[in-house]
Amino acid sequence: MAVLVSLVGGCTRPIVKPTPSGPPPQPGFTGIPPQGQVAEQELQGVQTNLRVVYFEFDKYSLNAEARASLEHNAQMLKMSPHVKIIAEGHCDERGTDEYNLALGERRARSVVDFLVSLGIPAQNFSTVSYGSELPVDPAHNEAAWAKNRRVFLRVTR
């Protein structure tokens, strides 16, 4: 499966077999920390090191700064190739709600496409657009808007 993935992705990096998720935890078994906890720490480690990608007003294209952030993110993701990534696209409040949902989706899609071009397997990704529903900064000024036009990469198992 990993071989197939690499071929499809057109990627030249070393093939890493996905880590097996281990046996399901047994009820009442408390002797050894379950493997899920280790995975949780790994997830948190990746999550902490990922950079948020920011966008220009009304744009879904990636500027130089965004591409630099994504190149950094690709390096982080290559160290944990089995994690799944949800690309969460957001917009500032200066668009209309419905169009913003499409714009947020397209921003997430731009990020995913670029990361795939850097060698992260396409099937590790999914996208969720929140439009302008979840601003990180609710203020109505340029500084807040710049923070809100973003794609956040959320890692999961």
Partner: peptide
């Protein structure tokens, strides 16, 4: 009930 859960957005 759920009517469309296609990947990505299901909107407007």
């Amino acid at each position: 009930r759920l009517l469309s859960a296609r990947p990505g957005i299901n909107a407007s």
